[in-house]
Design a protein around this nucleic acid. Structure first.
Length: 489
RNA sequence: GGGCCGUUAGCUCAGCAUGGUAGAGCAACUCCCUUUUAAGGAGUGGGUCGCAGGUUCGAGUCCUGCACGGCUCACCA
């Protein structure tokens, strides 16, 4: 007998026996009258000292996660959603026959239905004294050990269902993720933003610098790409007259996997007409603080070993000015010096000063930057979709938000000059021919849209996974994604 | 992709430096036990030691290769 069979066989036998006795081990007739949480909430002001039986009969359902048996009585711990609840069962409460049934057939992991009245134990724990007990769903597999739970990271991710059963902490992370997204949605809705959905399967994967996933449509007989960003479609909608819009959705980038990167990740991208990157800064600040307020009373978080203070106003730094000051020369004009510095650091800048500036800046500036900081004013050659600064056409009106040294948001005043946009796309194509796999492709239809006129608009994208990492103190992005991608076993 | 680390019972882990019949706790099974909180007590069963080679009289242990995973560096949000 293999080990797998030792457990499975025993429980399979119980299922057979149950069926023989006319009991459906996968019963769908039990209707609970209350959730665990509803009962806990109802008696929250009571304890041993002030509670007298109210004779109210409850019907509750849940998964058995622990059994402490004394022979003629037992305590059963069940869980529904996130609330644990204790059931007391004994010969006196259900009768010897039902008690024997319980001892013979009910295992840890099973879903059971119980009917009974509430009482407080000697140790003041609200419990239900069972008058009746029934099996709702038999479980064949054994749950992980009660004390350590499931700690093997690989198994946790591959079998997230077991992880969720055995860890409150994991459940809390995903509850907070859900709350965060709801919060963002309601914040933007209140500000008059309309939620929209744009194609994930795209002809041209544009709107960001990234390598796309390629797929194929049979009937249309054409290659398609999974979107790397919704940006160009959202701005088409702004052209169409939807002046405040957002989309919360998945982007796909065919790149490395790390504690900060999953091949598919969730962003909220939003566009606001008659705004600019400076106003967008305030909006992003407010939106993120709103999310921090979900978990912190003083807008401070401890992330790993660092304290992060989200109280506004957040630091703002001008990239070009900071780097010029620190290197001792004007990085926009002294390109020879700049490239020497970049080559020293082994950077692949494709002869673009902007690439070198951005990369050198990030390596030098982000050290020991834990609090939120807006990095403003990017070189035009790393920002093919952003509006040029009115005073200096070599830079664009753009910011990136870094928290704990990690990029959380990217935003800019949108480029709405179709001729400039066309030139930018052409430069991107040159770069692609030079071997830059992440350069944008030409999107002729997007140019066509801009030719109808797009009102001045600011846009922002916020990485939701990374935000949730901060809020839940998770060191890896996989901790905040239910099913992170893994190699086949 | 590089470096370092890991993979032993359903789960959590010892065992490996120095090769000699595979260990514990939880879970399971049999008993005792009617207020427990990782309940307690007595007993029993459970293993292709990630996979494949090699060295050796003998490998969980040493060597090589591979797979999967973790951390980290590089690229990216």
């Amino acid at each position: 007998m293999t080990v797998e069979n030792e457990y499975l066989e025993k429980r399979r036998k119980k299922i057979l026996q149950l069926r023989e006795e006319g009991i459906n081990p996968y019963n769908n007739t039990f209707v609970p009258s209350h959730s665990h949480n509803e009962i806990v909430d109802k008696y929250k002001d009571f304890d041993n000292s002030n509670f007298t039986s109210d004779n109210f009969m409850y019907k509750i359902a849940g998964r058995v996660i622990a059994i402490r048996s004394f022979g003629k009585s037992a305590f059963i711990k069940t869980i529904d959603n996130i609330t644990k609840f204790q059931i007391f069962i004994s010969n006196d409460s259900v009768g010897k026959e039902k008690m024997d049934f319980f001892k013979k057939f009910i295992d840890i992991g099973d879903f059971i239905g119980v009917e009974g009245k509430c009482f407080f134990t000697k140790t003041n724990e609200l419990s239900l004294e069972a008058n009746d007990i029934t099996i709702i769903t038999k479980s064949l597999n054994t749950l992980p050990e009660k004390w350590h739970g499931l700690t093997n990271i690989e198994t946790r991710y591959r079998q997230r269902y077991v992880d969720l059963i055995s860890s409150d902490k994991v459940k809390e992370i995903f509850l907070l993720r859900s709350k965060t997204i709801s919060n963002i949605r309601s914040y933007l809705s209140k500000k008059g933003f309309l939620e929209v959905e744009t194609p994930i399967l795209q002809n041209v994967a544009g709107g960001a610098a990234a390598k796309p996933f390629k797929t194929y449509h049979n009937t249309l007989d054409m290659d398609l790409f999974l979107r790397i960003a919704p940006e160009l479609y959202l701005k088409r909608l702004v052209v169409g007259g939807l002046e405040r819009i957002f989309e919360i959705g998945r982007n796909f980038r065919n790149e490395g996997i790390s504690t900060q990167h999953n091949p598919e990740f969730t962003m909220v991208e939003l566009y606001q007409s008659y705004s600019d990157y400076k106003k967008m800064m305030s909006l992003v600040e407010e939106l993120i603080i709103n999310c921090v307020d979900l978990v912190s009373v003083d807008r401070k978080l401890i992330y790993q070993d660092e304290n992060i203070d989200f109280n506004p106003p957040w630091e703002k730094v001008d990239m070009i000015k900071w780097l010029s000051d620190n290197l001792g020369y004007d990085v926009l004009s002294e390109t020879e010096e700049l490239f020497k510095e970049a080559d020293k650091l082994g950077m692949n800048h494709f002869g673009l000063p902007g690439r070198a500036i951005t990369e050198i800046f990030e390596t030098k500036f982000l050290i020991n930057k834990f609090n939120p900081v807006f990095v403003c004013g990017f070189p035009v050659d790393v920002s093919p979709l952003a509006r040029r600064n009115d005073a200096d056409s070599r830079i664009v009106d753009r910011f990136e938000l870094f928290i704990n040294g990690k990029e959380i948001a990217n935003a800019f005043s949108e480029l709405n000059d179709p001729d400039d946009q066309l030139d930018r796309f052409r430069k991107q194509i040159e770069l692609k021919q030079m071997g830059d796999e992440e350069a944008n492709d030409m999107d002729a239809d997007y140019i066509n849209a801009l030719r109808y006129g797009m009102p001045p608009t600011a846009g922002a994208g916020i990485g939701i996974d990374r935000l949730v990492m901060l809020l839940t103190n998770s060191s890896s992005i996989r901790e905040v994604i239910l099913f992170p991608h893994m190699r086949n076993e």
